[in-house]
Design a protein around this nucleic acid. Sequence first.
DNA 1: GAAGTAATTGATCTAGCGATCAATAGGAAA
DNA 2: TTTCCTATTGATCGCTAGATCAATTACTTC
Lengths: 209, 209
Amino acid sequence: MSSTSSRPRTRKPPAERAAEIIAAATAIAREQGLSALTLRAVAERAGVASGLVAHYQPTMDDLVARVYADLVDEEVRDVEQVVGAVADPAARLGALIDTLMDGEREELTVVWVEGWAMARRNDALARAVAAQMERWQTLVESIIEDGCRTGAFSTTEPGEVAWELIGMIDGLNAQSLARGADTTRFAARTARAAEALVGAAPGSVPVSS
Amino acid sequence: MSSTSSRPRTRKPPAERAAEIIAAATAIAREQGLSALTLRAVAERAGVASGLVAHYQPTMDDLVARVYADLVDEEVRDVEQVVGAVADPAARLGALIDTLMDGEREELTVVWVEGWAMARRNDALARAVAAQMERWQTLVESIIEDGCRTGAFSTTEPGEVAWELIGMIDGLNAQSLARGADTTRFAARTARAAEALVGAAPGSVPVSS
DNA sequence: GAAGTAATTGATCTAGCGATCAATAGGAAA
DNA sequence: TTTCCTATTGATCGCTAGATCAATTACTTC
């Protein structure tokens, strides 16, 4: 009667297994937020014993930071692509606002907000949050600089204005998360505010809504 | 040798004790955030057995929501007072931006951000967050309406603009929390954006920085 | 002064967390 | 085939969380 029903073992190359575990963690974070990332939840999702997760990710704090960085990195790349398809700086700024406020990013807003909150108790995550914010800032700053070069925009501090724009958009997304309201209807107004900040003519930054 | 060193009991009127417990919880939340609100931490702070906290606050979720509501309520009243001392609508809007971005409210920004994150797993807190956001919105909307009445502002949707302003300011405060950067230097720029949103003349909303 | 009410205590229960580790077994190398 | 390495397992440790409750005791009432 020694029917110890043990899980069938499948041995994989370490790199592959490690990738699977991170993929499982990323999927959980996307669906349920960073706070749902527990050792056991990730193990179950990956179809693996909890000890194996710990083997590949010695501390959960690091895994959370890694997943956060991966998710935001993916989003930044996505937005870079959307925005890169538009040539005119003003239109590009409009496309940025559009895509960041189209309501399709609520999953990532959860991650973003939880990142802010959890970073206070997780140093690795705090570093990841800071790093990803700077990626955003760099992206936005380059759009503003382009606009200044073509004369569409006019500001002496594109870097600071970029931070301000990011803060605004993040805040509006966080608010829509908390209120269950739609962000889309703020896009046009945000474009007007953005024009004031970058020194563009009123109405020159187009949004699709 | 029956020296069971038990805590000396002090019996108080239920209302007084309940108030003490809430005060202890509020102090912890202010200093360390909402996530530091544990049954035992509150009990220790209040100088009381853990069971007594549970006696007065049957669930921690409710206590967290209550503390959140109290803290934000206090802040709203404070801002109402600051802003109420200014007669001119444009100056009042400037005073609002000033006081919300003077960097003295980092403690409450932590509470605010944690509220967003924790509300997803705490229904009572979610309701409190929604309620407090509406208080802010009402406050800002009334300023905008005043400005429209005097002709200083011009917008057909003061309520929507109020939501937008709140989102912007919250986002910038959250950002400064995450980056460890100063919010103050964004105040002037935020005033420019606010002018665009409420339909005020550029430079008409004054900030002290 | 006695009796009763209820405020208060602290131990205890269940549940979940991250982390650790001896034991097991898959698969490559000899 | 046999040997060896290590990927993998699952039990377990220590800790903290919220919640529960019988026992205790301070205070009110009669």
